[in-house]
Simulated assay, not measured.
Amino acid sequence: MTAEQYLSGRILLAMPGMFDPRFERSVNVICVHDEHGALGIGIGHVREGVTFHEVLEELEIDPGVAPDRPVLHGGPVEPGRGFILHSTDWGGADTVEVQPLCALSASMDILRAIAEGRGPRHWLMALGYAGWGAGQLEGEMRHHGWYAAEGHREVLFETPVDARWMATWRAEGIDPALLSTETGQA
């Protein structure tokens, strides 16, 4: 694959009829995608019973001026590991640019910056991530699993969590009700 064919910075949507019920109506920001595999952060489902303030308090960080927001279910891999997807107006030593959509950080520095009111303008927190080995995501896409949408910032930072799947389809100009739930053989 060429660099243009990799999906970093795009939003991955579960197709209607997704073969894996854990990912039904899933919305993932693809943060890294290369010849070694892919890493995505789920942004379409809230992690029940966990808020941002609770995470900060568990890490012994005073929530300060940080708004208390729900934490998202980032994916099934390492569900106790936290990630912040955020606008590119903040960056730390470990920040990964997810061009053209956002940035990704997973350090205590960004948590402290948000609590102190000096963090990024836009951000969300997720626990866990979705991971694919080399060639795995491409295979799933060929077998009616995923659709790679453009990276729509308004979906990421301005759309309610439970509306992100449909909002991304709409931003792409597609009505998912018109999509087949099965693939065929040519």
Rank of each mutant, 00 (worst) to 15 (best):
G128L: 02
R22G: 09
R25N: 14
P176H: 00
G17T: 03
L104V: 07
V161F: 03
S180M: 08
D109P: 00
G131R: 11
H73F: 14
E58L: 12
G151L: 08
T51C: 07
S105G: 13
G184H: 14
P176C: 06
C31N: 03
Y6A: 13
T88R: 11
G44Q: 02
G145E: 01
H86L: 12
V27H: 04
G128Y: 04
I11A: 03
G82K: 05
V155W: 02
G49H: 02
P16M: 04
F23I: 08
W132P: 05
V27G: 01
P160R: 10
G40V: 00
V96N: 03
A186W: 14
E182N: 10
H53S: 12
D62M: 02
P100L: 05
G145H: 02
H53A: 15
H73R: 14
V65I: 15
H45D: 14
A163W: 05
G40K: 03
A14T: 03
V77F: 01
Q5L: 15
V96H: 09
G145N: 02
A163Y: 08
W90G: 02
T183C: 13
H36W: 11
E35V: 14
V32D: 14
G117H: 05
E182M: 12
R69A: 11
M125S: 10
P160Y: 06
G135K: 10
E24I: 12
P79C: 09
P176E: 03
G40D: 04
F52P: 00
S87R: 11
G173C: 07
V155C: 11
W123C: 00
I114D: 07
R69M: 14
C102V: 08
A103I: 04
L59W: 07
A186L: 14
D89V: 15
G145D: 01
V96M: 10
P120Y: 09
I61D: 09
L178H: 04
L111P: 00
F83W: 06
P16V: 00
S107N: 03
A106L: 03
Q99R: 13
L39S: 04
M141D: 06
E150Q: 14
I114R: 08
Y6F: 15
I43N: 08
H144F: 09
R153C: 02
Q99M: 13
E172F: 06
L12N: 07
G64F: 09
H122P: 00
M18T: 04
M141G: 04
V32N: 05
P21E: 11
G131F: 03
R47V: 00
P76C: 01
L72A: 13
G135H: 15
A66K: 12
A177N: 13
I174A: 09
R112E: 12
R25T: 12
D68Q: 10
R121L: 12
T181G: 15
E182I: 08
R170F: 13
G75T: 08
R153V: 13
R81I: 11
G119C: 01
G131I: 12
G82S: 05
A3I: 09
A93D: 14
A171R: 12
V77I: 14
E57N: 08
V29R: 05
G75L: 05
W90E: 07
L59I: 11
E35P: 08
